[in-house]
Structures are given as structure tokens and as C-alpha cells.
Design a protein around this nucleic acid. Structure first.
Lengths: 97, 97
DNA sequence: ACGATAAGCAAGTCGGCACTTGCATGTCTA
DNA sequence: TAGACATGCAAGTGCCGACTTGCTTATCGT
């Protein structure tokens, strides 16, 4: 469960995809490919991005909805809220006195 | 920077080590080996744990202090507080009303 | 000083992951 | 319906990471 999330976040390309979806939700595969190339300088094949999206979806970090021949990808931050607080049991340090 | 943290968290054994250090801070390598074996059922060699600790230390998640022939390992949650909020722009939910 | 204890170093093996290549499926437009 | 467009599936390749094995270094107790 959490294992999938951590492994999904291990790849820098996938994290960039999450950044991109965080900025503009509901993009298609081709949109993500284009924006990764132009804005982030990544030269990856379409299938590579597709596989990354599959990993992100399997981890629950991305939700997909199909409309005709388009498949839109939405960011889902729910799994993130749980894994981060795993070792942060104590409240964030308020301020130094 | 953040890349090291995410890659360090990708391995389940390293996450278990963080769990162990979170519960009892300042353990030596042998202590961690023993507790991983007895409490978590992991049968790993001492060198394997040592290499994992090196990765965690390189990521800044573990600080070490040397005293004689002992080397104590302390958990450092500082890198964690930054990476989690990367896609969580909104503040952490305070409490449900 | 000697042996025991705690840790470090280096090379080698093995499996998994990222990426590519090629082809197949489904869907809209003209 | 034909062709272009958006996506899916599957097999193959190459590299990095996890783990082991063997040896070495350093510190403590007796």
C-alpha cells in the first residue's frame, strides 16, 4: 500500500509529472508529454510517460477519467497526507525560544 | 537533494530502520541489526544494514555521532517536513469540526 | 600486548526498473 | 468508411540498486 506510493515517488520523472498535474489538473497523455518536453526539458517517449502514469495510478496518486478517445489525469494527494506524517509523530517544532 | 530523500525512502528496509530509530533513538549498528531481526523478522546481514544506514545518512535522514568504538544513529526528520508538502500546498488539516 | 568487539572497505552477483521498439485497439472527423 | 488521432499491450535491452562474501581497521577489556 504505502510501498507503492514510496516507490512511485522514487523516480524524478514521476515527481515532475505530479508537479505538472499539480499546476494544471486533468491533462491527457499527449499534453503531459508536450509539457514535459517544452517546460522541463525531458525528452521521453510517449510510452515511457504512459508507463509512469500507470505506476502513479497504481499508487493512487493519479485518478483517470475517460472521455471518448481522451483520458484525463487528475492528481490525488490523499495518499501523500498519510505517508509524510509517519515519522513526524510530534507536532512541527513551533519556534525556538 | 530531495532526490536522495525520495530514493532513500523507496526501500522498505530503510523505512523500517526509520521506524526503529523513531521509536528508540541513538542505536548502534548492532542494535539495529538485532532489533530488525527479532522485532521485524528481517534476516539481513550486518553489512546490508550498514549500507542502508549510509544511504539514510547521505539523505540527511540519519545523523551519526561517534563515541569510542560505538557509532550512534539518530533520526533527523528535517528533510521529511519539506518533501511531503511539495504537492500539499494547503495547510495540514487542523481538526474536523 | 592479546583477543574480542564494533565498524569500514571493496568487489562481485542478481533481480528489478526505466526505457525503447513494434504492433494492436479504439475513436473522432471528413 | 477510410484515415488520422489518442491510447494500450508486449517483448526486449541496459543499467542501477540491494545483498553477499571476504578482508581490514579501530577501540575496549583483561
Amino acid at each position: 500500500m504505502a510501498d507503492d506510493v514510496f516507490k512511485a515517488l522514487a523516480d524524478p520523472t514521476r515527481r515532475t509529472i505530479l508537479d505538472e498535474l499539480s499546476e494544471r489538473n486533468g491533462q491527457t497523455l499527449f499534453e503531459i508529454c508536450a509539457r514535459l518536453t517544452t517546460r522541463h526539458g525531458l525528452g521521453l517517449s510517449r510510452q515511457a510517460i504512459s508507463q509512469h502514469l500507470a505506476v502513479l495510478e497504481a499508487a493512487g496518486l493519479v485518478r483517470t477519467r475517460r472521455e471518448g478517445r481522451y483520458k484525463f489525469h487528475d492528481l490525488n494527494t490523499e495518499p501523500l497526507e498519510q505517508i509524510a506524517t509517519r515519522w513526524l509523530r510530534r507536532d512541527p517544532p513551533p519556534e525556538a525560544p
